[in-house]
């Protein structure tokens, strides 16, 4: 399945995933601690500069990932223009953009398998309630069944369209959920057929 990891190889791709996540956590915490617009601007600039390491296409893709934030930028901007406290508004927008861009950068430069390995390490203390193998199996099952169910949903929508002039809309949700329940029973069978979970 498609992941958000960028196919453009950057120097950041070669850094260990755990290290990148630790730096990201510190950086994000720091962003909420500093208030000076100057420092926030520098933080955002630093994150954007790191995007630049990957070249123009990589950086452009990084900016595209920020697009869902524009309604919030607009609302906060207008709000603070209204209240006349523009500096505070700019700080909030800078902080939000820097935090999201930094997090996206880690996602874009870390392979899924490395992320899963970090997650399994983090989950180690939970071993008694959540054995690592069960977690890995659960993750694999979701990745396996998203395309399967996606196809199924398209079939259900087609079956609806074949007998209706309207689009299926929400009416496909119930058959989709039933299909998920049926698939779950079969997956349980397939798991048990090969030894089950301990």
């Amino acid at each position: 399945m498609l992941t958000l990891t960028s196919p453009v190889d950057t120097p950041l791709h070669r850094l260990p995933a755990g290290g990148k996540l630790a730096v990201l956590a510190l950086f994000t915490a720091g962003l909420f601690w500093i208030t000076s617009p100057l420092w926030l601007t520098l933080s955002l600039a630093a994150v954007l500069l790191l995007h630049g390491l990957g070249g123009a296409a990589f950086a452009r893709h990084g900016l595209l990932l920020l697009r869902p934030l524009w309604p919030f930028v607009a609302v906060v901007g207008l709000w603070h223009l209204w209240t006349g406290d523009g500096i505070a508004g700019i700080s909030i927008i800078l902080r939000m953009l820097a935090a999201v861009a930094a997090a996206n950068l880690v996602t874009m430069t870390t392979r899924l398998s490395d992320m899963i390995a970090v997650l399994e390490t983090i989950a180690l203390p939970l071993r008694p309630v959540l054995p690592p193998r069960r977690l890995a199996l659960a993750i694999a099952l979701v990745i396996r069944f998203v395309p399967v169910m996606s196809e199924r949903l398209a079939q259900i929508a087609e079956a609806f369209r074949a007998r209706s002039p309207r689009r299926a809309g929400w009416r496909i949700v119930a058959p989709a959920a039933l299909a998920a329940l049926d698939d779950a029973e079969r997956v349980a069978d397939a798991l048990r057929a090969r030894g089950g979970t301990e």
Partner: peptide, 27 residues
Amino acid sequence: MERSLSHIALFAALIAVLGLVPKIDLA
């Protein structure tokens, strides 16, 4: 155990798939 795990995983996939379908138009 297997049933619990498979239901949890399949419904996680269901959430994902319901987000992939184009937006549903209400009335």
